[in-house]
């Protein structure tokens, strides 16, 4: 299978920027509606409020992986390739993230 046009999201390096969430949002090209969906989903999964000024270094490793997964899911990218995403998640989060991925209309590969 040709994966060259998939957006690769590797949980070993979940976030590219290292200051506030606004920087990471620029990379994923999220509009305001997608940002609202992202923050709602993140709050449901992590019981934590996100704003564009949230310092991503204050998120735990697992929360950073969840954020990466949601950023990609809410981005315009139609094809996603997730790597190593479940290792950093607790059992409940694995189940919930797995459901989100399974219900997404995007074409998604999880390795």
């Amino acid at each position: 299978m040709d994966k060259s046009d998939f957006l690769v999201c590797d949980a070993s390096v979940p976030l590219v920027t290292c200051d506030i969430l606004r920087d990471e949002l620029l990379l994923y090209n999220l509009d305001s509606q997608a940002f609202d969906a992202l923050t709602n989903q993140f709050n449901l999964l992590s019981q934590k409020e996100l704003t564009k000024s949230t310092k991503i270094t204050e998120l735990s490793g697992g929360q950073q992986v969840i954020l990466m997964i949601l950023l990609a899911l809410n981005s315009p990218a139609p094809k996603l390739h997730y790597l190593n995403i479940f290792r950093a998640l607790d059992p409940q989060r694995r189940l919930e993230v797995g459901n989100l991925i399974a219900n997404s209309p995007k074409q998604i590969i999880v390795d």
């Binding site: 992590s46 934590k48 998120l59 735990s60 490793g61 697992g62 929360q63 998640l89 607790d90 989060r93």
Partner: peptide, 8 residues
């Protein structure tokens, strides 16, 4: 502890 519980 679960993700975000404060271990790290």
């Amino acid at each position: 502890g679960n993700n975000g519980s404060g271990k790290s």
